[in-house]
Amino acid sequence: MAGRLETGIDVLDRKLDGGLPPGFVVAYTASPASQSELLLHELTAARGTLYLTTERTDDVVRHAIESSQAKVGSPTVRYVSSDDPLTEATRLIGALPDGANLIVDTMDALERTDREEYLTFLNDLKSQMLETGSIAILHCLTGRDEPINRTQTEHVADAVFDLQTKVSGTQVENHLAIPKFRGGGQPTDVIKLELTEAVEIDTSRDIA
């Protein structure tokens, strides 16, 4: 579709009619025991990317991306400390160039802050994406101890990508659903992925 920005991940771009609209904010939910980071790493190949890491150091993230067997880019990686994550993240995002990717991995530290301050951060983030024509991918880990502001993240986000990983017999199965896509046009079927060295369609059975 004209005007959309490619994600750089072929299977996603096909399902999304060419990619994501400029200005979109995506909440990407996944289990911490999944291979969800593969998708984040491949997103860096499409365009210049600011990669904010809140849990692993910037050196560790750079090493993981550089060691990837998939097609990746050379993102600017910055570590966001836990002392004042909202202020630090806001400062870094403020320097985002036009038409870029923003990846926040993970959102947990930001989502555990004051609700009103966090909502201000989310709305400012959305304004920045619209102003620069960029795309934000917010990596949100699921589990028993989800942050108190997770609901706000998913509500403000323009789209929700939900990766479900399960072990079935001797197989590890990954299914990506897109239950929310503001403006319509999201795929109605679940995408079955193979997450090993790269993000690919799983053709072993029940092709999505």
Rank of each mutant, 00 (worst) to 15 (best):
S74P: 02
L138Y: 01
L125C: 06
A177R: 15
L5K: 09
H63T: 12
V160K: 00
G48R: 11
Q152G: 05
K180F: 00
T120V: 15
L86Q: 04
A157Y: 00
G19F: 08
G73P: 06
T120P: 01
E37G: 03
A30W: 03
D108W: 10
R14V: 03
Q186P: 01
P187S: 13
L125W: 02
L5I: 14
A100V: 04
P85L: 08
R4P: 06
L163S: 07
T153A: 12
E55Q: 12
K15E: 10
L43S: 08
E146P: 07
K192M: 05
E55C: 09
T151G: 09
R14D: 04
G73D: 08
R4Q: 06
R150T: 07
D98T: 15
Q35L: 08
A136L: 13
S168H: 09
R62W: 03
G23K: 09
N123M: 14
V190G: 02
L141C: 03
F121E: 03
I137D: 03
G8C: 09
I93Y: 00
T87P: 00
I178Q: 04
G73K: 06
S36T: 07
I135M: 10
P97G: 05
G99L: 12
D158N: 13
E197K: 11
R78K: 14
P22V: 13
A2Q: 09
N123D: 15
T76H: 08
I9R: 07
A95R: 11
P21Y: 00
I191F: 00
S68G: 06
A33C: 05
A109I: 10
L43N: 07
G183V: 04
T188Y: 07
L39N: 03
A177M: 07
T7H: 05
D10H: 07
Q186V: 01
R78D: 05
I9N: 06
G143L: 12
H155F: 14
E66A: 15
A89G: 01
D108T: 15
A70I: 07
E116N: 14
D58F: 04
L125G: 00
I135F: 01
L52G: 03
G48I: 09
E194F: 08
T196I: 13
S134P: 02
Y51M: 10
T170L: 09
L52H: 01
E6N: 07
P97D: 11
R56Q: 14
L110M: 06
L193M: 03
E111D: 10
F161N: 10
D84A: 13
T29E: 15
D189Q: 15
